[in-house]
Simulated assay, not measured.
Amino acid sequence: MNKTALYKQIQEDIKAKIKSGELRPKDRVPSEQEIMDEYKVSKITVKNALTALADDGLVVRIQGKGTFVAEQAGLSDTLKMTVRRGGAGNLVGFIIPTLKTKVIQRLVDHVEYYLKEAGFQMILWITRESSAEESRAIKELTESGVKGLIVFPTEDEKYNESLLRLSLDKFPFVFIDRYLRNIDTYTITSDNLGGAYETVSYLLNKGHRQIALISPENVNTAIEDRTAGFEKAYIDHGISIDKNLWCHVPLDILRSDDALGYITGFLQSRPQITAAFTLTAEMANLTAGSFRVALRDETPVELISFDDPGIPGVPYVAQDEKQMAHDAVELLHMRMGSEHVPQHVVVPVKLVMPPTESDENFHGIGHKEARI
């Protein structure tokens, strides 16, 4: 009798199909209903299996469309097989921390497209926010003979000797989105500082003064630059800033079940807040959930997010992932054929105001009117 939990059995069966090639990258995985019918299990069992596969970076779940096999690598056997089949001369490694966010999913799609246009094949390696796995990816990919690397560093990374070695050896690689300030190389980022500056300026011009900053721990360049943009807006407007309204959630809490309670406690102890700017989409969703618990109906708070949180009525700062991918591939290609002359390309962002339910205003989760 098989004593393996049903959701794990489903998970292992789908993994086996991916490994065997029966399910290939971008293939649609059977629907929840199809899996329920095949295994005679409940919907929650199927959800647990698919969630576990998504957490492992093997599948991508797209609301309203279904579950699809991720464009992923990271297993040495898979990498070696690819190199043997196509040769390493046209391979470029793309090292990413996760496939859970829409921003990274779109970056993967666009990078693969532009690499193919330039005559390269992409090898994707997911580090799952592990600097040790990032180092292993760099070692195996470079030893396999890839032509270059595009690296999206891990969330809590300040220094990685493997990345420093790449720079010292003048190996062609490009940082995308996040970067390490102590490594002088080619870098593509969104205008994180400018996007935060314009958003906070927009809120200040509307009359808000008690604006909360809600963010992951300030441990990477994207968060650092967005935080700096927030502060610069107050300084340039000549308005005193209250950093007691800043909430940088420690990563160990953010990655646990305590994140919602942590933000809820922060909001409950600061009833003077009239607006909140969250520095990631994940933080926007946690904050929206906290609003329901922490704030009275008569205490509206205007919420704006960096990146689309998928919450109706919530404005957000949109990154141009297509342009970032294009510029990253162009820089990498240029680097392959020229001397090492480091440069940092900053891609513009824009504040997106969502469609409204009427011509006059909209109502999100505890929101006042918000439009430019």
Rank of each mutant, 00 (worst) to 15 (best):
1 M>N: 03
12 E>D: 12
15 K>N: 07
18 I>R: 03
26 K>Y: 09
31 S>Q: 01
33 Q>M: 09
40 K>Q: 10
45 T>P: 00
48 N>H: 10
51 T>R: 02
69 V>K: 00
76 S>H: 12
81 M>S: 15
82 T>A: 15
86 G>A: 11
89 G>K: 09
89 G>Y: 08
91 L>Q: 05
94 F>A: 03
98 T>D: 10
104 I>A: 01
110 H>R: 10
115 L>C: 02
126 I>S: 04
132 A>Y: 15
136 R>Y: 11
141 L>A: 01
142 T>G: 00
154 T>L: 07
158 K>C: 08
162 S>C: 08
165 R>K: 15
168 L>H: 10
170 K>C: 11
175 F>E: 02
187 T>E: 02
187 T>S: 02
190 S>N: 10
193 L>K: 15
197 Y>V: 10
199 T>C: 09
211 I>S: 08
212 A>D: 05
216 P>C: 14
220 N>G: 08
242 D>L: 11
250 P>F: 05
253 I>M: 11
254 L>D: 06
260 L>C: 07
263 I>Y: 03
264 T>G: 07
269 S>C: 04
276 A>V: 15
279 L>A: 01
288 A>N: 00
291 F>R: 02
298 E>M: 09
301 V>K: 00
303 L>H: 01
307 D>A: 15
311 I>K: 01
311 I>L: 15
313 G>I: 06
322 K>G: 07
323 Q>S: 13
328 A>V: 13
331 L>I: 07
339 E>C: 08
341 V>C: 14
344 H>F: 13
347 V>Y: 04
350 K>C: 03
350 K>M: 00
356 T>M: 15
357 E>Y: 11
359 D>G: 13
360 E>T: 12
